[in-house]
Structures are given as structure tokens and as C-alpha cells.
Design a protein around this nucleic acid. Structure first.
Length: 686
DNA sequence: GAGCACTGC
């Protein structure tokens, strides 16, 4: 890799002249060119700028990136790829895409359509909120010239010239538009987070750039790993933008905290009592914890009565509806204090993200950062960077996407951090067993359809084949339910009632069918939220399952996969559903040994049924949705299946000549013999 | 008979 060509751009401030720039880039447009040059008319929608535009513009000009605007544009002009390192508060996420838009020519031969600038974000909230902000800064309506695109919500139009989108969304777009031809410039933001999608986009874009000399790439990162990016992108120039606007003081605890949640709440209350007014941002790991913390903070503060001011606690996590998530961007009414409880990354975090989080405190004014661990622990225990997701994930889905993108030689695909060859091999093997890839590793017709579903390949497979089992409606519902957070609520003060409520949905043949019952009951009760509350199911989870289901239905329709159900009164109703599930999950099967333990077929692991299961017996064979390692090896969400079905539905996987000697093998041998005999009898009857 | 959390499509 051409690190020898590495360049560093010198930093110097250039006096900015936006008016001249705009006149230049406005090109040959006759309409009001003069007004545009004079900064009176918005070149994007032809309307006069509002007063607010100018007010915001003055504030924007104080952001650190503005001091390097001309320099940035020069580097962009001279290079196809560039890397920009800017810490929190530099303004890079909102300003850089606007600078780009101002400078590049996005006209196309078709006068009605322009090319776009894309800016990716790892998270939906960010894509949405940043685009809103930028639309305001550009004095246009969100969804028109500036838009965003996230799963379930495309807020963009034919007029959109700047689009914020999740990195996963851009990857999906690449599947139908392999050269990303509607984009002129792609900005990959938060590249340091190294999400799976970002990492795949790195490799993909590197190739696309070779085929599209007119495309440009800006990689933005918050951390010093930038030199690694530089090496990877053939010595692309590196620009550094100074970070936060205000100093942040960092405090550590003296002793390690036993209960970080309790410590976090205590710290919040202390800050509330002792510090001047402002915002507090708390990082926690999950929905339940966040809701819990919100309740406790409210309670503790109200217990203190008039000694302290009121507090407004705002939760933030991904499964909150978007409108609720937007709440955290509303300013707190002046006399109130505000606590925002946020969940972003699962701990233990890296030093880099700890640093980035502390940066949040200095965004609008000087801040303080309270780390609920010791300084020693920060220095010794935390990894310097977050380990890239691609090195710790199951890659079956990623490999399927790459294949669909036309990347055949995965071993030589240019990953920034190549996954172990065994990991890739395992993914290829799984896809081959599922019939998504043929024996030469080429995508099959089935695989092509599977790749269009935003699901794991096992689930896509069961969905695609479900019409053959006459139960696609039910498999759609089950898939949707498996794709959202656990819908069963079990509050500490009402555990017994919650268990009883769950038991009412229980299906003796397994948890998948229980989920189906819940979904059906939810629909039959008109998606009513108080019904959910009374029955201890999470309304939000069910609503989002419904949303997922609709998306899946649309994909099914695109491929003419028929929506069908077996007659509910037929004995085959549940049998068909279980068989269809097995057609996708035949690699996730466990067998009950005479010892009373379950052994997985895949790797002969001893596993236990997760206590959340609703079976009233221990079936000889089960399929499971996931394998979780907590206090024991558990298989969670399990359903009873019959050994005969393994032989019928997945004989290529249950090929006994490759099977290790075990009880399951002997059982299967008998089943195969039985099948042989049945066939012979049928033949002789003829 | 024990919970374990997250993100993205």
C-alpha cells in the first residue's frame, strides 16, 4: 500500500469569500445570478434567504472547520480521496457536506435531476437530526434539497442534493446501484467507529473510485487512527481540524464502582445539587437500564424537594420512536436542569470512545466529564480503539451482500482489517448449505433473493421457501417478531403476573409459535397499547415488528413470493410452520441425549434450554434461534421439531458419512433406514 | 430454572 505517497496538508487560514465561490459555482444559470452572487437568493431553491439563515451563518463561521474551508476545498479539488480528522465540536458533520456541495458540479445532462452528495452515519438518530439541522442551515425544507434516508423512512426527493443516510443504507443502495452513480461525493462520517457497514463500504468504495474517476470520497474520523486510513487509501491526504470549542475537565472515581448504574444516578444527583445549570449526558448500555435510571433520577430529585431545582430527564435509545429521540435536541427551558440518558456503545468502551464521549461535554460551553472508573483502570484496562466489528462478527450476511455486490474473490477483497480466512470460509459454507451459493461459490437465484432481505441468511431462507410450506404469512410474522427486541415485559414488582400473562400466549411446541400467538393477539386487539400494557408485552416492540413485517412483505412481493396460510383448523397448520422454520434453521438444531442434556448438531456442544422457554416437555429435537453464553450455554427461542423432517428437508446437511459418531447420528441412521423402507414399500405396491 | 442489555439493514 502506497504509504510512501503520504502527504500531510499544512494548516493555514484563508480569508473566506463565499459570495465569489457561489457566483462561480452557480454556473450559467440566468435566473437571478446576480442576487445569488450577492447572497440574497438561495441557489438551491431560488428563494430569498431568511433572516434566520444569516444569523445561523454567522454562528457557523465560528466553527473550527470554517477556518480551513478554503484549504479543504483545495485538497478536495486536487484529490479523489481525502481523510479528515476532526474531533467532536469541530463542526465537520454539518459543515463539510455543505462545503462539498458548494464546490462540486452536480449538474447532469438531465436538467431535472442533479447528482447528490451523501454523508453516512452509523446511527439513525444522527442521520435524521443532522440532516434536519443542515436543512435549517441551508434554509431549505427537510426532505427537499436536504434529506435523509434510514430504514423505514426515506425523507428525500428528486430535488435532494445532500442526503444523510446510515452506512447500512448506503450499502443496501450499492446493491442496486453498484457504482453509486447518483452520487458525486460520498462522505463517510464517524469512520473510526468501524461498523461492519463502514468497513465493507471502505473496500467497496475503493473499487468504485477506480471505476469512477469523477467520484470523490471524504473519510471523516474523530480519532488518530487516521494514519491507518491514510495507508489504506493509498496515501490520501490527511487534514486535521482542531477539536472541541471549550475545555472539558475530566474526573475519575477513587475506587472502582461496584454498581455503575447506582453510581451514575448518584453522580447525576450530585452534579444537579452542586454544579451550575446546564445539561448532563449519561451513557448507559440498554433500554431497561435507561428507563430505570430516568425513573430513579426523577424520584431522587423530587425527594429532595425545594432544596434543588427541577430536573427534566430525557431518555434516548434506538427503539424509541424517532419523534421521541428528537426530543433530546430541544433546548431545556432556562430554569430547568436537564439530564439526557443515552445509550450508544456497549462497554467496556475504548479509550478512543471515552475520549470522544468526554468531548460531548464541551460542545456548547466548558464542561466536566465524570468517569465512573478509576484513572488507573482507564490507563490499563481500556483498549486504545474499539475493535472493528468485522473482526468479531459472524459474516454470513456480509458475505452474501458482498457476493450480491459482485465481489467474487472474498479472500482478496481489500478489507482494511481482513477477517480471518476461517471466518470467511465458515460464512461461505453456511451460505452453500442454505443454497445461496453453489459449489463454486457463485450466487444462486435463491441467494440473490435472500440477499435482498435485511435479515440473517437463515431467516431469509425460511422466508423465501415458506410459500412452499404454505405458511408465508406466519413465517413473516415470526421473522418480524424475531427481528425486534424481546417483547415480553417482566417488571420486578409484577413478575408473577407477567409470567402468567406470558403463559397465556404459550404454545407447547415452542417459543417461535408463542411469538406468533402474541403477534396474532396484538393484531386481534387492534394494536391497542393498553391491551399490551395489561398483557405485559412491549407495545413499542410489537409496533416495530409490524413495521418490519410490512417491509418484508414488500420484499416478498417484489419477488412474486406468494402470501399464504394453511387452514388454521388443519392439523398441518403448525406442522407446516415448523417445517418451514427448519428449512432455514437446520444448522441450529440440538438433540436430547439419553443423559438428559442437549447437544448441538453443528458442533456437539452441551447446551441448555433457556429458562424463558415455554415448552412443557423436553423434545427430542429442537431448533433454536440463538445460542447465548451467560451463566451457562443456553439456546434461546426453541421449537420442537421431528427428526424425520431433518432427513426430509436437509439431507445435504444431515449427510451421515461426514457425521461424528454420536447418539444423534444413530437416531438419524434409523430414520434414514425407515425412509428407505417406506420408499421400497411404495415402489412394490406399484 | 435464570435472566445480560446494543447498533444497522
Amino acid at each position: 500500500m502506497g504509504t510512501e505517497r503520504k502527504r500531510k496538508v499544512s494548516l493555514f487560514d484563508v480569508v473566506d469569500d463565499p459570495a465569489a465561490k457561489m457566483a462561480k459555482t452557480n454556473g450559467g444559470r440566468a435566473d437571478g445570478g446576480c442576487a445569488v452572487a450577492n447572497n440574497l437568493i438561495n441557489r438551491w431553491n431560488g428563494k430569498p434567504y431568511s433572516q434566520r439563515y444569516h444569523e445561523i451563518l454567522e454562528k457557523r463561521k465560528t466553527l473550527p472547520v470554517w477556518h480551513q474551508k478554503e484549504e479543504f476545498l483545495q485538497v478536495l479539488k486536487d484529490n479523489q480521496t481525502l481523510i479528515l480528522v476532526g474531533e467532536t465540536g469541530s463542526g465537520k458533520t454539518t459543515q463539510i457536506p455543505q462545503f462539498v456541495l458548494e464546490a462540486v458540479d452536480i449538474e447532469t445532462p438531465d436538467k431535472r435531476r442533479k447528482m447528490m452528495v451523501a454523508c453516512t452515519q452509523p446511527r439513525r438518530v444522527a442521520a435524521m437530526s443532522v440532516s434536519r439541522r443542515v436543512a435549517e442551515e441551508m434554509d431549505v425544507n427537510i426532505g427537499e434539497e436536504v434529506g435523509y434516508s434510514i430504514r423505514f423512512e426515506d425523507c428525500s426527493s428528486a430535488r435532494t442534493v445532500l442526503k444523510y443516510l446510515t452506512d447500512g443504507m448506503l450499502l443496501r443502495e450499492a446493491m442496486t446501484d453498484p457504482l453509486l452513480e447518483r452520487y458525486k461525493v460520498i462522505v463517510l462520517d464517524e469512520a473510526h467507529e468501524r461498523t461492519l457497514a463502514t468497513d465493507v463500504l471502505f473496500g467497496l468504495l475503493k473499487e468504485v473510485l477506480r471505476n469512477r474517476p469523477d467520484l470523490k470520497l471524504v473519510v471523516m474520523s474523530a480519532t488518530l487512527e487516521a494514519e491507518k486510513f491514510q495507508g489504506y487509501f493509498n496515501g490520501a491526504p490527511l487534514m486535521k481540524v482542531p477539536g472541541r470549542l471549550h475545555p472539558v475537565e475530566i474526573f475519575y472515581t477513587q475506587e472502582p464502582e461496584r454498581d455503575y448504574l447506582e453510581a451514575a444516578i448518584r453522580t447525576v444527583v450530585q452534579i444537579h445539587m452542586c454544579e451550575p445549570s446546564g445539561d448532563i449526558l449519561v451513557f448507559l448500555t440498554g433500554e431497561e437500564e435507561i428507563e430505570d435510571a430516568c425513573r430513579k433520577i426523577n424520584k431522587e430529585v423530587s425527594n429532595m424537594g425545594d432544596q434543588v431545582g427541577p430536573v427534566k430527564v430525557v431518555p434516548l435509545y434506538s427503539t424509541l420512536p424517532p419523534a421521541m429521540q428528537q426530543k433530546i435536541f430541544e433546548p431545556a427551558p432556562p430554569p430547568l436542569k436537564e439530564v439526557r440518558v443515552e445509550s450508544l456503545l456497549v462497554s467496556p468502551i475504548s479509550k478512543a470512545s471515552a475520549h470522544q464521549r468526554s468531548g460531548r461535554a464541551g460542545r456548547t460551553q466548558p464542561g466536566k466529564c465524570f468517569r465512573l472508573y478509576t484513572e488507573k483502570s482507564f490507563n490499563n484496562d481500556l483498549q486504545p480503539q474499539t475493535y472493528p466489528e468485522i473482526l468479531r462478527s459472524n459474516l454470513a450476511n456480509t458475505v452474501l451482500i458482498l457476493k450480491k455486490l459482485g465481489i467474487d474473490d472474498l479472500v482478496h477483497f481489500d478489507f482494511m482489517d481482513p477477517p480471518a480466512p476461517e471466518t470467511l470460509m465458515r460464512a461461505l459454507e453456511v451460505l452453500n448449505y442454505l443454497g445461496a451459493l453453489d459449489d463454486d461459490g457463485n450466487l444462486t437465484k435463491l441467494g440473490e433473493i435472500m440477499s435482498e432481505f435485511p435479515l440473517d441468511p437463515q431467516m431469509s431462507k425460511m422466508l423465501v421457501v415458506s410459500p412452499e410450506f404454505n405458511c408465508s404469512n406466519e413465517i413473516l410474522s415470526i421473522s418480524a417478531m424475531l427481528s425486534v427486541p424481546n417483547c415480553f415485559v417482566r417488571p420486578r414488582e409484577a413478575q408473577k403476573a407477567a409470567d402468567e400473562a406470558k403463559a397465556r400466549f404459550g404454545h407447547i411446541d415452542g417459543d417461535h409459535l408463542t411469538l406468533l400467538n402474541v403477534y396474532h393477539a396484538y393484531k386481534q386487539n387492534n394494536e391497542d397499547s393498553s391491551w399490551c400494557y395489561d398483557n405485559f408485552v412491549n407495545h413499542r416492540a410489537l409496533k416495530s415488528a409490524d413495521n418490519v413485517r410490512q417491509q418484508l412483505v414488500r420484499i416478498m412481493a417484489r419477488f412474486n413470493l406468494k402470501l399464504c396460510s394453511t387452514d388454521f383448523n388443519s392439523r398441518e397448520y403448525y406442522v407446516n410452520i415448523r417445517k418451514a422454520m427448519l428449512a432455514g434453521y437446520f444448522m441450529q438444531v440440538a438433540h436430547l441425549e439419553r443423559s438428559g442434556h442437549y447437544l448441538t448438531v453443528k458442533d456437539n456442544q452441551v447446551v441448555h434450554l433457556h429458562p424463558s422457554n415455554c415448552l412443557d416437555h423436553k423434545p427430542e429435537w429442537v431448533i433454536y434461534n440463538e445460542y447465548v453464553l451467560t451463566s451457562r450455554n443456553f439456546i434461546r427461542t426453541v421449537t420442537d421439531i421431528r427428526g424425520e423432517w431433518l432427513v426430509d428437508i436437509a439431507p445435504h446437511y444431515y449427510d451421515l458419512s461426514n457425521f461424528p459418531q454420536c447418539e444423534a447420528k444413530r437416531v438419524l441412521e434409523r430414520l434414514y433406514k425407515k425412509r428407505e423402507k417406506e420408499k421400497e414399500e411404495a415402489r412394490s405396491r406399484k
